[in-house]
């Protein structure tokens, strides 16, 4: 009998929402547990199996000197490393600090700033170690997480499209909220994967899945000109 691949889930600076989407798989959780040995997942179990691990899912950004060291340890014990979520793939909302003086922020937020040991920046996992795959989303979509895990187990490329949310709206038959209602919608510049969740409920996309492919080529004024047309 061949050994089941081992799975580890690691957390850096983040809200835990992405790793919770693994627990949120509910219906598919038994299939996941059948396909891999969950060897390190503190959110789910305090039982820890020793590494190395076949697949590591890494949530969160690198924000402290301790993080910056620990991610190298995680990389060393991981055969395949997938960073999951906006924090791990871009630095997350905490990367907003980059635009400010760190000292000002720390003293504005904490009563005892001297207790805080932090880096000036909040950066993506791929800025520190080689990453095998980045899964975008805030939080990630559980269907995409299962697809990535399944694809890695099968040795095939994951079906994680990099085109716009618009493609998902059109497939679902959701009328464009931007064109039919003039709502601000970031769908044309945002990567698909959510299943067009917000437009399906008549709201504009606010971009939680991050930039689509070549998003830097999207002219912001061209998109913004559509808002309120």
């Amino acid at each position: 009998m061949t050994r089941k691949p081992t799975l580890a889930v690691w957390k850096f600076s983040s809200c835990d929402g992405c790793q919770l989407s693994l627990l949120d798989c509910e219906d598919e959780l038994l299939a996941v547990a059948g396909a891999v040995e969950i060897a390190y997942f503190l959110e789910a179990s305090s039982a820890v199996a020793r590494g190395p691990y076949d697949l590591s899912l890494v949530e969160g950004s690198i924000t402290t000197p301790h993080d910056a060291e620990r991610i190298h340890q995680v990389r060393r014990v991981s055969k395949t490393l997938v960073s999951i979520g906006a924090c791990a793939t871009t630095g997350g909302i905490q990367a907003l600090r980059s635009a400010h003086r760190l000292g000002d922020l720390v003293s504005a937020v904490y009563a005892r700033p001297e207790y805080i040991s932090t880096l000036r920046t909040s950066t993506a996992i791929a800025d520190h170690v080689p990453v095998d795959f980045e899964l975008q989303g805030c939080p990630i979509a559980k269907a995409q997480l299962l697809e990535v895990v399944g694809a890695l187990l099968a040795g095939r490329r994951a079906n994680v499209p990099t085109y716009s949310v618009c493609v998902e709206c059109k497939r679902a038959g959701v009328p464009c909220v931007l064109v039919s209602r003039g709502l601000p919608c970031l769908g044309p510049a945002t990567q698909a994967g959510c299943g067009a969740l917000c437009p399906s409920y008549g709201r504009g996309c606010f971009g939680c899945f991050g930039p689509k492919e070549q998003a830097s080529d999207v002219e912001a004024p061209s998109l913004a000109s559509a808002f309120g047309r």
């Binding site: 085109y163 716009s164 618009c166 493609v167 059109k170 464009c176 769908g187 044309p188 510049a189 070549q214 080529d217 999207v218 002219e219 061209s222 998109l223």
Partner: peptide, 8 residues
């Protein structure tokens, strides 16, 4: 320069 390459 105007096209968003969104595919709509």
């Amino acid at each position: 320069e105007r096209c968003l390459s969104c595919g709509n």
